[in-house]
């Protein structure tokens, strides 16, 4: 009896020490789930989800405060990927999906107020006070955050056109499943 209690106590103490040591030795900095969520988000930093950027939204998802279907630039693909990662059911997108866009400054109208430069979350606009500004197209995420601050409304959002470099083969027409099933059932039945 005594030896059993002793053995269990010793084992408990040993495992307690082991776990304690492991939690210090193999401590993980940051929130790995949040990092994984952040990696799936498109990083447009547009704020359409209601959070001031992709990382805050990822943090909110990781805390379970918000649904995974609020990323408009990511679209359904992102919802599916997030659902896959978090083991949730994919939901239809809460906001309208938008195709890739890029900002374009009408350089004749621009007065050089620098307000759009301050608004751009990825520093994709170059220019100086009272000098014309321009958008670095390759770095623009199409977040639209530069549009409202512009006092002369010289920024347009242009949908990214398909060219040879980003052309994709279309999805083949889906086999007419029900029809085929009908035919098979009639021929066998």
């Amino acid at each position: 009896m005594l030896s059993a209690i002793l053995a269990i106590t010793l084992l408990a103490a040993a495992f307690g020490l082991l776990l304690g040591y492991a939690s210090i030795r193999f401590r993980v900095e940051g929130d790995p789930v949040m990092e994984k969520i952040d990696a799936l988000l498109p990083q447009t930093q547009c704020g359409q989800c209601g959070y001031p950027g992709c990382r805050p939204y990822a943090e909110a998802i990781a805390r379970g405060e918000v649904d995974i279907n609020r990323c408009a630039p990511g679209g359904d693909n992102t919802v599916v990927a997030l659902a896959d990662l978090l083991g949730l059911d994919p939901k239809p997108l809460e906001v309208e999906e938008q195709g890739p866009m890029v900002a374009l400054i009408d350089e004749d109208t621009c007065i050089g107020c620098t307000l759009c430069i301050q608004a751009c979350p990825v520093d994709a606009i170059v220019g100086a006070a009272k000098h014309m500004h321009t958008v670095i197209e390759l770095e623009c995420t199409g977040c639209k955050l530069c549009v409202p601050p512009c006092p002369v409304e010289c920024i347009d959002m242009i949908p990214v056109e398909e060219d040879l470099a980003n052309w994709k083969w279309p999805f083949p027409e889906t086999p007419p499943k029900s029809e085929a099933a009908d035919r098979v059932s009639t021929s066998t039945g």
Binding site: L41, Q45, V122, E139
Partner: peptide, 18 residues
Amino acid sequence: QERDKRKADLARQRHEFR
């Protein structure tokens, strides 16, 4: 998707730097 991923990584890097 790989192109989008590269673009997202660049945007994340630039946003964090900002």
